[in-house]
Every structure is written in structure tokens, then in C-alpha cells.
Design a protein around this nucleic acid. Structure first.
Length: 646
DNA sequence: GGTCTTTCATATCG
DNA sequence: CCGATATGAAAGAC
């Protein structure tokens, strides 16, 4: 990493807030700014480091399944064993990453991390160097956005993977306490040096993290560097590390843990920490020290703090979510007598203007839209169910921009229509799990010896193809291996957008890995498609979708010999889909090269490998009201969608 | 550099 | 559905 090129903050006047530029920070603290005017970063590294080599046609497909299954389990166990220091974990990192992101040095990696005896804390420690990142170019922004997304995908993959492994142990009657997947995931990533933003203490926005981004675990906030405390509500550079001996606060979490908090959205009265017993009762006076002092010092220097709100959310795994709500300035602090009768420090924070709307406010809006849409937005709703009762959950249609009601004039198609012969071909094999499918289920074997979904119905790993239980199986409809066939679980809204023509958003928070909907259409064979194309109709070619499933569940950065699942090998998709007359909500989704939705092929109602369903899953936690996007695999930004907008 | 302490976690159990 | 309790992990304080 080249730190020589770093320029002291005072020499650059890039900070966009004029009033605070001069008083922003005392020279003593010597904050530095990452120079951002050097050549743009290299394109994001290819997400896959191990190519998906098609395995040679095995005579026994079963051998493939088991070897893959056993190898992975072994991989997991041996990596756990490494905690005791008997093997090397070599991280897989992009050597050209921007300097602000930690790039693990293989040498320090070996000496500091891998060989560290159990219990010692020889991981890379946090830097105390204050930095603010401003004026990111669009390409920088995309790079960091992608980096954050990949980091969070890895976190989630590891979390779910750890829980899945834990369940196997449970099945084998090994008594133990349930694994905390969040802790396991963060530990793995820390060992591999994959925590972000640890070599600088960033004041202000974290590159790649947007206002409104939603997190389910505190450890996840640590991993991306948004808030570095596993439990504490105030994150700060400690006095002992600060160049002027004063602590500086960088972020807080507002989650109602203190009775004297007042949260009015743009204005927060935040209570300092301390003085509580283990039952969170205020039993002592607070002191102006640690985080309290840091907040006071941040106020003095006019340093903004990141605010993350934590609140209860139904439908969240943990029952709670954390939402990044942007930057606030501390404008006032005083010592007050709290409700308990003990003295507490209070801090008045005001949200800095000209930021996009608060994530928590957007979530509240979406919540009320679900219940009474017409009262909240009297204008713009064209219909409250585009699907005309075909979907489990109505699909709203909103257009407050122009009079285009085109989506109304298409027949709503809930699932793809295949040619009839598809259902008569292929095997009619199914499982015999009358009492519900377990690990020895035939369909589980077909998925490589593991369930494709976790108990919440979230996809574990992207695969060339997933077999769900279907009509040939004897398991009940409640079987865990039936997910996509049950249809949508979220409230979607098709909307008119000035930027993307049509778009799709959800009024629910969608957890990463959860099923969204099918990409439905009428299947045309190659011959039929040629005729249609000659008539000037635009068709969807499923083979063109980028294979983003490879990124979901990719653990190659943690387990060096991890390989992307290549089983079962499916023939290239050789059909087109007509969505000109019949379509579902999916075809209004926009294209993006940093998509939040990916395509996973699934079979459930027939066994013909050549005609799978195109099922869409969330690549990241998608906050309510954020546009869904797919990688259509097209060079031109909007071509994928233009094909069906006309 | 260890060890201790604090901390607006999280899961489970009555 | 709470509250108590157990387990846990980061990182600041000393």
C-alpha cells in the first residue's frame, strides 16, 4: 500500500460543507484524506477465482454428489481445526484494491494471524488515523459498492453455512449449544483479514454503504466498518490512540437502550453510556469519559457522526434490524437528571441537510403503504393488484409520472409456461419422505447432499440447478425443500421511473438469499423463437442472464480449496421466453451491473433439465422502496429492459 | 502487552 | 410476551 501519496487534510479543500471547513478539525489531530484524484481503480476483480470447470461426464452422478458433500464438510472441519494453529489460511484478495481497504499482506497474515495461538489477539488492530472520504467518482462508488456487497454476501454465506454445519452436528446427536452464525462468520472473516476499513478510521460516510442499507447483526456492522463495537453504542477513536490525546466519536447506534433517549428522526437526544447495571437500569451517575467524552469532543470540533438506528422489525431473523440513517452533527450537550434520578449526559444531534431520506423513515413509509396505500399516497396508484389475485400477495402498480398504464394490458402470468412435452419427458423420480424430508432424502442427494435452503427458505449456495421436491415426491407441502413453488412472499410494486422506465420495488424488507419471484414467460423453442424474431417481437433469452448465482455462497476467500458447485451440469439453455403478452412482475425489473437480484435455475414440477424455471433471489438485503435490479448480461445498460418496454 | 472492564448483543428459557 | 440468564466478542482502559 502506498501511503506516501497521502496528502494531509489541510492541503486539500475537498470537504463540501463550507461552514465547517475551517473549523472542522484541529491541526493537532492531523486527519488525512485519501487522495482520490489518481487514476480510477481497476475494474472490480472477477468474483470467481476458481472457474466453473465442467466436471467430466461421470458415469455415476451420485459419486459426484457425495464427494462434493464430503469434501465440503471436511473443509469446514479442518478450518475450524486451524483455530488451533496447524495450517495456513491464505486469503484471496485483490492486490490492486484501493488503499483505504485493508489488503492483507500474506507475510503478516502468516505471522500475525494464522500462527497466533488460540486466545491471543494478534489480528490486525484498528488504526487511529482519522480520514474522511469525499468526492467519490462514480466508478469509485461502484467499486466500493460492489466490495461492500461482496463482503456482506460472504458474511451471510458463512453465517448460514455455519448454522447448516451446526445442524448436521445436531443431527449426529453431538450435544452442544447452538452456533451463533453471526459470530462465526465474523470470526472467519477476521482471521482471513477481510474486515473492511480497519486501516483508517473513517469520519462520515463509509464508501459503498448507502443511507438506508439494512443490517441484521451488529457483527456485520463491524465487518464493513460502519460501527466497530460489537455491543457498545458509541464508537470512537480512544484518547490513548488519538494524536492530540482527545477521543473522537465516529458513529453511534440508536436502539432505545436508554430510557432518556428522545428520537424525533432528524433530531435525536442521545444518552451517553455508563451508570447502568447488568439489567440496564440506571443506578449511577454517568461520567464524562470514554464515549461520552468522545461525543463531546466531536461536537467541539464539529465532526459529524454516523447514525445507525436499531429497531424491532417483524420478519427479521433476529426480530431486529439496523438501518444506516446518515450523518448527524452534535450541536448541544448537557448533564441532566434522568428518569431514574441519576445524572446522565445528553447529546442533541441534528441530521445534516442534503442527504437522501432516512432509511428508517422510508421503512416506516413502506410499512404504512402496505396497510393503507391510498391514504398515504392518494395519487399514483393505478391498481392495487396487477396480478388480479393470481399472486399470493397483491402486486401494486404505481405511476405518478405520466399516463402510461401499459402493464395493465398484459395478462398476468404467475409461472412460466413450458411446452407440454416437457412434462412428459425426463424421469418421474421423487422422494419417499412421507414424514418430511431429512438429510437422507433423495431430493437432498440430488442437490449435492445438502438442503438447498435453510429453515427460513433462504438459499444456501448458488448452483447450476436446484431440485425442489415436487408432485412426484411423497413429502408434505410443508417440506423444507419447497420454496420457490410456493410463490411470492413480499409485497411488490411496479412503478414508473424517469431513469429506468419501469421498475420494481418491494414494500417489505427482503433478506439476502430469500426468494423473490419467478422470471415468468411463455417458453419458445429455438425454431419458434426464430419466427417470432422475424416478426419483430422482442424475446428474453435466459442463457444471457449473467451467472450471478456463482457469487452467492462463494466461500473461496475463506476456504482456499473451495470450488464453485458444478453439479448438476445442465446443458446451455436453448430456449427463449416471450413476455410480450403474458408476463409477471419480474420483467419490469431493471438491469444493473451491480444487481441486487440473481437468477437461480430450479426444477420442481418436471424433471427436464433443459427447461428449468428461472427463479430470482435477493443478492443482498434489499430495503423497502429500493429498486430491484438484475444482471441481464447485456453490454448496454438498459437493453435488457428496453426489450420489453417497447 | 497482557488482563480487566465495559458494552444500546443475541438466544433461550421460564 | 416480558425479564432473567447464559454466552459471547470487540476494543478501550490500565
Amino acid at each position: 500500500m502506498d501511503y506516501n501519496s497521502m496528502i494531509p487534510f489541510q492541503d486539500l479543500n475537498l470537504y463540501p460543507d463550507p461552514p465547517t471547513t475551517s473549523t472542522f478539525i484541529t491541526p493537532k489531530i492531523e486527519p488525512k484524506l485519501e487522495p482520490l484524484d489518481e487514476p480510477p481503480p481497476p475494474p472490480p476483480p472477477p468474483s470467481l477465482h476458481l472457474s466453473d470447470v465442467a466436471s467430466p461426464a461421470h458415469s455415476s452422478a451420485e459419486a459426484d454428489i457425495y464427494s462434493e458433500f464430503c469434501r465440503l464438510s471436511e473443509l469446514f472441519r479442518s478450518t475450524i481445526a486451524q483455530k488451533h494453529g496447524d495450517a495456513a489460511i491464505l486469503p484471496d484478495s485483490d492486490p490492486d484494491s484501493r488503499a483505504i481497504v485493508p489488503v492483507p499482506d500474506p507475510e503478516t497474515q502468516v505471522s500475525n494471524v494464522v500462527l497466533a495461538p488460540r486466545g491471543s489477539r494478534k489480528y490486525q488492530t484498528r488504526s487511529s488515523e482519522l480520514v474522511r472520504v469525499t468526492d467519490l467518482k462514480p466508478e469509485d462508488d461502484r467499486y466500493f459498492r460492489d466490495l461492500i456487497r461482496k463482503t456482506r454476501m460472504l458474511f451471510d454465506s458463512l453465517r448460514v453455512f455455519s448454522i447448516a454445519e451446526d445442524e448436521k452436528q445436531m443431527d449426529m446427536m453431538v450435544p452442544h449449544r447452538k452456533t451463533r452464525g453471526d459470530l462465526k462468520a465474523s470470526a472467519f472473516m477476521r482471521q482471513s483479514g477481510l474486515w473492511l476499513n480497519r486501516d483508517k478510521r473513517i469520519v462520515g460516510d463509509i464508501p459503498g454503504v448507502s443511507i438506508g442499507d439494512v443490517f441484521f447483526f451488529r457483527m456485520e456492522l463491524c465487518v464493513v466498518g460502519l460501527h466497530g463495537q460489537a455491543q457498545a453504542g458509541i464508537d470512537y477513536v480512544p484518547a490513548s490512540h488519538s494524536s492530540n490525546g482527545e477521543p473522537i466519536a465516529t458513529s453511534i447506534i440508536v436502539s432505545g437502550g436508554y430510557e432518556d433517549d428522545e428520537d424525533a428522526g432528524d433530531v435525536i437526544v442521545y444518552t451517553g453510556h455508563g451508570g447502568q447495571d447488568k439489567h440496564n437500569r440506571q443506578v449511577m451517575h454517568q461520567k464524562l469519559e470514554c464515549g461520552n467524552l468522545a461525543l463531546e469532543r466531536s461536537m467541539h470540533y464539529g465532526i459529524e457522526v454516523r447514525v445507525i438506528r436499531g429497531f424491532k422489525y417483524e420478519g427479521s431473523i433476529s426480530g431486529k434490524v439496523y438501518v444506516y440513517d446518515g450523518l448527524y452533527r452534535i450541536i448541544e450537550t448537557w448533564f441532566d437528571v434522568g428518569k431514574s434520578g441519576f445524572g446522565v449526559f445528553k447529546f442533541k444531534l441534528v441530521r445534516i441537510e442534503n442527504q437522501v431520506e432516512m432509511g428508517s423513515a422510508v421503512m416506516k413509509l413502506a410499512q404504512s403503504l402496505k396497510i393503507r396505500p391510498l391514504e398515504v399516497r392518494p395519487k399514483g396508484y393505478v391498481t392495487l393488484d396487477l396480478s388480479r389475485k393470481k399472486e399470493n400477495i397483491p402486486v401494486f402498480f404505481f405511476n405518478d409520472i405520466d399516463g402510461d398504464h401499459d402493464p395493465l394490458y398484459h395478462e398476468y402470468l404467475i409461472s412460466t409456461i413450458f411446452p407440454p412435452y416437457v412434462y412428459n419427458s425426463g424421469s418421474t423420480a421423487g422422494c419417499e419422505c412421507v414424514g418430511g424430508c431429512l438429510n437422507d432424502c433423495f431430493c437432498v442427494m440430488r442437490n449435492g447432499g445438502e438442503f438447498a435452503y435453510d429453515v427460513h427458505g433462504n438459499i444456501l449456495r448458488g448452483k447450476p440447478l436446484i431440485f425442489e421436491c415436487g408432485p412426484h415426491c411423497r413429502c408434505p407441502p410443508t417440506c423444507r425443500n419447497r420454496v420457490t413453488q410456493k410463490g411470492v412472499r413480499h409485497r411488490f410494486e411496479v412503478f414508473r421511473s424517469r431513469e429506468t422506465g419501469w421498475g420494481v420495488r418491494s414494500l417489505n424488507l427482503i433478506q439476502a438469499g430469500s426468494f423473490i419471484c419467478e422470471y415468468a414467460g411463455v417458453v419458445l423453442t429455438r425454431e419458434q423463437a426464430q419466427i417470432f424474431t422475424m416478426n419483430g417481437d422482442n424475446l428474453i433469452y435466459p442463457s444471457r442472464f449473467a451467472e450471478r448465482w456463482k457469487e452467492w455462497g462463494d466461500l473461496s476467500q475463506i476456504f482456499s480449496d473451495y470450488v464453485c458447485p458444478s453439479y448438476p451440469s445442465v446443458p446451455p439453455l436453448d430456449f427463449a421466453m416471450d413476455v410480450s403478452r403474458m408476463r409477471n412482475v419480474a420483467c419490469y425489473m431493471s438491469h444493473s451491473s451491480i444487481p441486487n437480484v440473481f437468477v437461480q435455475l430450479v426444477l420442481y414440477d418436471h424433471n427436464n433439465l433443459s427447461f428449468p424455471h428461472l427463479m430470482l433471489f435477493a443478492m443482498e438485503n434489499i430495503p423497502p422502496m429500493r429498486e430491484l435490479s438484475l444482471d441481464y448480461g447485456v453490454a448496454d445498460e438498459w437493453m435488457g429492459k428496453m426489450a420489453i418496454c417497447n
